[in-house]
Simulated scan of single mutants.
Amino acid sequence: MGGEFDMKNLGELLIEGKTKKIHLSKSDPSTVIVLNKDRITAGDGARAHDLEGKAEIATKTNTLVFELLNAAGVPTTFIRQASPNIFIAKKVDMVPLEWITRRLATGSYLKRHPGVHECFRFTPPKQETCFKDDANHDPLWSDEQIICANLPNIGRDEIQIMKRLSLVVFEILEKVWAQLNCVLVDMKIEFGIDDKGNILVSDVIDSDSWRLWPEGKKELMKDKQVYRNLTNVTSESLNQVKINFRWIADTLESLKKPANSLVVIALGSSSDLPFAANIETQLKAFDVKYVVRIVSAHKQTAEALHVVAEYEGVNKSIVFIAVAGKSNGLGPVIAGNTSFPVINCPPLDSTGRDVWSSINLPAGIACTTVTSASNAALAAAQIIAL
């Protein structure tokens, strides 16, 4: 990821933190250049060590995370990775708050809430907000404190937007890590506001940002808590922290879209092709593999059953979308002869009466009906994602 970056494009140094420097871009003043450092800190900087290679690992992790969020439609500042330890982002005014989302109770939460047992599960996730103030150890703030602080451009609506986006980010990444057999215990993110007033997920999201337990086991933790817990910091223990961070980046990079799945779009006749094209367009947008087969349940019943049997034996996770107008027997016939999910998507006439043959089905026929082509594709993609 990222090649050589022309350092001549580094503009004014806007801010230097414990683990990164942020410069204005000379070529595009609406963007900033973020340089990660080979530095690890904890306890508001009370503990700090050089860790060779950390900048590259952190940049890789951050890039993978923000690319996932951008692909999911989350508004972020991230643009692209420019070199192994540099990425480009939109210039924003940072909001001096950290938004914390917790799935399991651990760490400081247990100290603040005696009686809550370790790994108590929050459903929905617990959300907290900290005011960024190292001198006072980033104190927790309520919504009322944020409002009364009169932060620039931050009111009740903006608080609710950031709160909701924090939850969205957590739930996306929780599902990603669950797919990789890891539990996202908690995480923190920050926001910025651009010159149009848009609220964007900002700063960085890497191994400094979360608690991550492979197989759901605290003793296998791979996040920065390992560094925080060290009683004696040695070169060997620091190297183990770096190995953990690299494992996180490499594991995220291994994430692949479900390749062993397929949507079979079954059409009653070639006249359904224009309607089915809308399904194809949406599946392509989701990067879901599909095939189109034309077979009539009424006129080619044996062939329809042969098509079902063909895909029963391909060793893939299949979703059928049946597209047939008028008396739609295609979806019910397929559903009656397969254990895979079937979605009816009949092209309706102006009266809408064609839908009844898709929803008024005999007992034991469990296909769903979605009349919108793009929504049928979305439903198939959701099933595959599960």
Rank of each mutant, 00 (worst) to 15 (best):
L180N: 09
D186C: 12
T59F: 10
R112H: 13
G331F: 12
G73Y: 14
D203L: 12
N375R: 01
R112W: 11
A363R: 13
G107W: 07
Y311P: 12
Q382H: 14
A276R: 05
N232S: 10
S296G: 12
A277C: 02
N150R: 13
K126Y: 14
M1A: 15
I359T: 15
L14W: 00
N229K: 10
L262Q: 09
R228T: 14
K284E: 10
G325H: 08
I159R: 00
T231D: 15
A72M: 08
A46R: 15
I205F: 06
Q127V: 14
C148G: 08
G73P: 08
A380W: 03
G155R: 05
L110I: 06
P347H: 04
N244M: 04
A335G: 14
G329L: 05
S327A: 13
G197A: 13
I199D: 11
F275K: 02
L267S: 05
G216N: 03
A266I: 01
D44K: 01
R246M: 05
L140E: 10
N229F: 07
L361R: 08
G197F: 09
V74S: 07
Q81E: 02
N344Y: 09
L200F: 14
A277V: 01
N360S: 15
V263G: 12
K90L: 13
I265N: 05
S209Q: 03
A71G: 14
N239I: 01
S237E: 04
A377F: 03
E174N: 10
A105P: 00
T281F: 11
A309P: 07
V74E: 00
F78V: 06
T368D: 08
L104A: 00
I22L: 05
S166L: 05
T231Q: 15
F170G: 06
L10E: 07
A277E: 04
L165D: 03
E118H: 04
I57E: 05
D38V: 01
G313D: 08
A266G: 08
L273N: 04
L173C: 01
V65P: 04
L69S: 12
D50L: 14
V34C: 11
Q145R: 11
S83P: 09
H306L: 13
M94S: 06
E280C: 15
N337G: 14
E174P: 06
P96Q: 08
L262T: 02
A380L: 10
D208W: 11
E253Q: 07
R228S: 15
D6W: 01
L180W: 02
W99N: 10
C148P: 00
V292A: 11
L348W: 00
D223R: 08
T234D: 12
D349A: 07
A71W: 02
Q179M: 05
E144D: 09
H137Y: 15
A366Q: 12
F66Q: 02
I100C: 09
K126R: 14
H49Y: 09
L64K: 02
G73A: 10
K218A: 00
N36F: 05
E144T: 03
E171M: 15
D6K: 04
E98V: 12
P114D: 04
E128L: 09
V291P: 07
I159P: 07
A82W: 11
K218F: 05
S374R: 13
S270P: 08
A277Y: 00
K26C: 05
N375S: 12
N315G: 04
L69G: 14
G2C: 01
C130G: 07
H117S: 01
Q382A: 08
A46D: 06
T129M: 15
